[in-house]
Write a protein that binds this DNA or RNA. Structure first.
Lengths: 139, 139
DNA sequence: GCTTGACTTAAAGCTAACTTTAAGTTCTAG
DNA sequence: CTAGAACTTAAAGTTAGCTTTAAGTCAAGC
């Protein structure tokens, strides 16, 4: 399978596949005349990577995980640790977003004119501070 | 107030304040010998900006909002539109994170050895696809 | 044999919100 | 008066996960 075929099948760009290879998530495949030729297991590998990025794992984390798998290491502890950490991140994100939501709803019901608005906002500063302290890296 | 003082009081770096000025969120203040001197209302302005970024608004959105305020435009429609849009984003983020959470919890209870894992993961692909379609810009 | 589409590389570009750096100026305390 | 802290600028660097570009090579169909 050429890279374009693999890309179309997996639903991403060929450049992404090359990027995964450069990042060490995908083993360099055989080549024919300089061009990459993939065996069919490459597809499931790529799909797994997409799946994991979709779940919010970073490429670095996925690489860790995949390298464990490549060694045929039992999935157990490695995966559990990564997933548990990610679960905590996701839960924090939910909590933060909930606070944000109620704050936004509250502010939407506050009909203050012009700059008085700011004053009202800043009265909420204890809440704000809690929010700011919760700020995550991303997502 | 010099920029360092303002920065310390507001809890950010002086470079961030200069950045806000360059981005047009903060009016250029008076200068003494080339150095910025801020009146006290600059503090509430900066705090408002921090507040809004903490709520997930981008600097571009905040600029829009602040320029409305500067004109003494009534807050009404402009703010309502921005906040409503942001509320939708936040709600989508919550929904997405909930799906992620249940997926992660499910996977944590799946004790499959080595690469079989991947197969199990990929069986979830309809869920995955829904997740992927939900992917937001950030946060 | 030739065209054309698919492939190759390294390096730069993208986004957001800043920070860091480098080189120079000004303020302030002693 | 002088040391050093704080300020100034423009430009480059940071993070992640790619994409785009430029310039060139290869493959497949006619």
């Amino acid at each position: 399978m050429k890279i374009g075929q693999l890309a179309r099948t997996a639903g991403l760009n060929a450049s992404a596949i090359r990027y995964y290879e450069k990042r060490g998530l995908l083993a360099p495949p055989q080549r024919t005349g300089g061009q990459r030729r993939y065996a069919s297991d490459a597809l499931s590998r790529v799909l797994l990577i997409r799946f994991a990025t979709g779940m919010g794992f970073t490429l670095a984390e996925i690489k860790l995980f995949l390298n464990g798998l490549r060694d045929n290491t039992p999935v157990g502890p490695r995966w559990k640790k990564l997933a548990t950490r990610k679960l905590i991140e996701v839960e924090q994100n939910i909590a933060r977003s909930r606070k944000l939501k109620s704050l936004l709803q509250g502010l939407l019901h506050c009909h203050c004119p012009s700059l008085q608005f700011c004053v009202n906002c800043l009265r909420l500063s204890p809440k704000l501070r809690r929010l700011e302290n919760m700020r995550m890296k991303r997502r």
